[in-house]
Design a binder for these strands. Structure first.
Lengths: 161, 161
DNA sequence: TTAGGTGCAAATCTTTTGCAGAAAG
DNA sequence: CTTTCTGCAAAAGATTTGCACCTAA
């Protein structure tokens, strides 16, 4: 935990930004809720517990800044709010989501299934892939009663609102 | 063109809705700009040429209604506005987008590359896929100077704003 | 002391909604 | 007539911005 904060601190400082108490509180909230896909409002309410004087605008500015530094990923599941996801270290981050149309949950798959496709894109479409995102809409294991699959054991979940 | 409007009219009427002049003008704009991914505002401005008295709220209501009828697909590329895409007939629609981080263009791939993955999702993740969406961020053929690939000849493009 | 940061409130932008009147079956 | 639909204006909700003050190298 501390090591990851230190790393984020360095990412900020390398670009001339500071890890202020407000930013640190925000980062801690993100680290503590890494399994979820929090919205700015979610983060704001959680940060208020640690630093009640913080303003919503500061949270937005922090999330925006961390997104630009590629510490966070800003994403949109179509529910009207942006959600943010910490990127794991320096390794490629793969965004494969299982979005349940019934309960609204979002599970995240940690495997990368797209490398072969990226090769094809380069060769057949002359497109140089920098990042990707893959979302599936459907019925999750909770709603279809088939039980939790072993493959999801290391997944992140964003519970429905 | 007329045949497709007739089909949409039937989709509306089968659910007790009418193809009003405003809705028809909206649908015609969508048909005439099928290669683009228009926002509600885009559609509104184009519809005004045909029917200057139309209100923005009507456009929003029409787009929402057509999305619910699965005539349109509502999507979000992270630029702050919802964009709409006509679905092709009754066949499955595959949403594979090449989003250029440099010029902002969005090309659409019409192939479906994900069927094998959907099988795996069912078997390994107990997730029943209803729909999917795959976005790649990167540098497009226009920006990297490698020329237009033959594979893109039947693609849709949403030009940068 | 100087650039970066913050909180607050106001502003902006997209989208939705209430309402009274219009259109269609 | 009764339901659906429309335009307008107002409202709502998310995000951004202007500004005066603050805080660290």
């Amino acid at each position: 935990m501390e090591a990851r904060i230190e790393k984020i601190k360095q990412a900020l400082q390398s670009q001339g930004f500071k890890l202020t108490p407000q930013r640190e509180a925000t980062v801690r909230v993100l680290l503590e809720n890494e399994e979820d896909h929090l919205s700015a409002e979610d983060v704001f309410m959680l940060v208020k517990d640690k630093a009640p004087e913080i303003g919503l605008a500061t949270v937005y500015r922090t999330l925006e800044l961390l997104s630009e530094l590629h510490v966070l990923e800003k994403m949109n599941f179509g529910d009207g709010v942006a959600r943010y996801d910490l990127r794991n270290d320096s390794t490629h981050h793969h965004h494969h989501h299982l979005i349940c149309v019934q309960c609204g949950s979002v599970d995240e798959i940690m495997e990368d299934w797209l490398t072969p496709l990226e090769v094809r894109l380069d060769e057949e479409y002359h497109f140089q892939v920098l990042d990707h995102r893959l979302d599936f809409q459907g019925i999750c294991h909770r709603c279809n009663g088939r039980g939790k699959p072993a493959a999801l054991d290391r997944s992140k979940t964003h519970a429905p609102t």
